[in-house]
């Protein structure tokens, strides 16, 4: 079983990430992957010119590794990967790739869903939206926090 975490200021290529992951998880029956992309519109409803992800080298990687390790502990998955951008991301560019591989599909779906809900609130980033009105630091939304809370309830994920 393996948890892989990569943080990079360079472009993220989801097709290459998936290809690599499929090689690593050869022999598993179910592979789920998710790609998160920078939305073209800011929270203020203006065209986004850039999304900046500030990070603290060392601390940020540890938060990602912790989230990946929790997914492996909570669900019967064989392998998990998180590949995340940092720095300045242009609109409609991929920010995150998540993959989960298991013998059976339910665990892979649940693990990928869990990974994204945790990443949206607990990953060690500070996000800034740049649009025509200026730059704005943003925090997780109420919906993000609710999504994360799903996993502390009985029958988590339902």
């Amino acid at each position: 079983m393996g948890c892989t975490v990569r943080l990079s200021p360079g472009p993220l290529a989801p097709d290459a990430e998936l290809r690599d992951f499929l090689q690593i998880v050869a022999g598993k029956g179910a592979i789920v992957n998710f790609v998160g992309v920078a939305r073209p519109v800011s929270q203020a409803g203006l065209p986004l010119t850039g999304l900046y992800l500030d990070h603290y080298p060392g601390l940020t990687e540890r938060t990602l590794a912790g989230i990946a390790a929790s997914a492996c502990a909570l669900f019967p998955v064989e392998d998990v990967v998180i590949a995340h951008r940092c720095g300045l991301v242009e609109p409609e560019q991929p920010i995150v790739f998540v993959g989960a591989a298991a013998m059976h599909r339910r665990a892979a779906f649940l693990a990928a869903d869990y990974l994204m809900d945790r990443l949206k609130t607990d990953a060690g980033f500070w996000k800034r939206e740049d649009d025509a009105s200026g730059s704005h630091w943003i925090e997780p939304t109420g919906q993000d926090r609710q999504d994360r809370e799903r996993w502390s309830q009985p029958h988590a994920g339902n």
Binding site: G58, T63, V96, L119, A123, F125, W126, P140
Partner: peptide, 28 residues
Amino acid sequence: CVDGMIVRDDAPVRRGQEIAFIPPLSGG
């Protein structure tokens, strides 16, 4: 943060350690 770990206010600080202050996390 002390040496890259988030710590509580009663955590010790020693000479030469890396100190940082961080706002609430935004998530990814």
